[in-house]
């Protein structure tokens, strides 16, 4: 490639150019765009819930108990006569809250542990990775269950419990990437310049791990939603009267044969949102994964 595009004049322009090229490549993935649109819609619902909702999600109206979908109750009403549509809209806030809370805590923890273990090797690596193995060896939901049982039910505790189960895959991933990156010549070059190991890890290795971590995070969000809903379903996540989707399914279970909409509507919401995160993750993986990227 001898010919080079018009020279950018500043760092900011260089970044902007990289970003534009990324957006252009992303826009060629229809399923990924669809995933992104749904995720953005979720965020939109969460922010503007009061405007989108038709009823107060907590307003009990016993005469309307288990009402079928109608012009007033778009998706019907639950066992206390609360509007299911409004509850799902408000529930998006809880879902998003849990997902964000879990991701912003578990990914950095896992990344840090993995990079340190991979970069130093030896004893540190062995200790860190055995701890990781222990966490990985126990089924996720079971472990989360044990933590919530210990911490007490509630939405924040549920998020914390999921965090404790969600970081090990990031540590594994970051360690594997680090093992490859730490011996590359570009890392050797800064090592020769006298860089501290901390600087090498934070400035040179971590940026190379972030793309796979972001991909993994996106896929994980689907799993987190399911685990959170699972905890809600068995009554250990969000507590009533909070309109958490899992908990809503749980109450709807009793009426599943006669008033199917009570459980189906929140189930559908969970399905759509986790599908969206998976589609988005797929597209991001195609674009960001360094191993796939070379084959383009």
């Amino acid at each position: 490639m001898t010919e080079v595009a018009a020279a950018p004049t500043s760092m900011r322009q260089a970044r902007a150019r990289e970003w534009r090229s990324f957006v252009r490549r992303f826009s060629r993935k229809p399923l990924g765009v669809m995933g992104l649109v749904i995720v953005l819609a979720l965020v939109f619902c969460a922010i503007f819930a009061p405007m989108l909702a038709t009823h107060d999600p907590y307003a009990i109206s016993l005469p309307e108990r288990l009402a079928a979908p109608s012009a007033t109750y778009w998706l019907g009403a639950d066992e206390l006569g609360r509007d299911i549509y409004s509850r799902i809209i408000y529930g998006s806030r809880l879902t998003l809250f849990i997902v964000v809370l879990v991701v912003v805590t578990s990914a950095p923890i896992g990344l840090l542990i993995g990079v340190i273990a991979g970069n130093y090797g030896g004893m540190i690596d062995r200790v860190f990775m055995r701890v990781t193995d222990v966490f990985l060896a126990v089924p996720k939901l079971l472990l989360a269950l044990a933590f919530v049982a210990a911490l007490g039910p509630g939405i924040v505790n549920a998020a914390l419990a999921i965090t404790l189960t969600a970081w090990p895959p990031y540590a594994r991933l970051a360690r594997a990437e680090t093992l490859l990156i730490r011996n590359t010549d570009y890392v050797n070059a800064v090592r020769l310049a006298g860089a501290s190991e901390w600087r090498i890890m934070m400035l040179h290795i971590v940026p190379m791990c972030t793309s796979s971590v972001i991909v993994r995070m996106t896929f994980d969000m689907a799993g987190i939603i399911l685990t959170a809903a699972g905890l809600g379903f068995i009554g250990l996540g969000a507590q009533p009267p909070l309109p958490e989707w899992g908990a809503m399914i749980s109450t709807g279970r009793k009426f599943i044969f006669d008033q199917w909409w009570v459980a189906t509507a929140p189930g559908f919401a969970i399905f759509i949102v986790s599908l969206a995160f998976n589609l988005l993750g797929d597209a991001l993986r195609d674009l960001l994964d360094p191993h796939l990227r070379q084959r383009r």
Binding site: M11, T184, D185, Y186, N188, A189, L192, A193, G194, M208
Partner: peptide, 29 residues
Amino acid sequence: VQMVFQDPYASLHPRFTVGRAIAEPMRIQ
């Protein structure tokens, strides 16, 4: 003493601009 490596495709950090790559040793020092 400094070293120049064999493969120029593997010896520059893919996420660093040229300016940053050259400045990095001086920032370290």
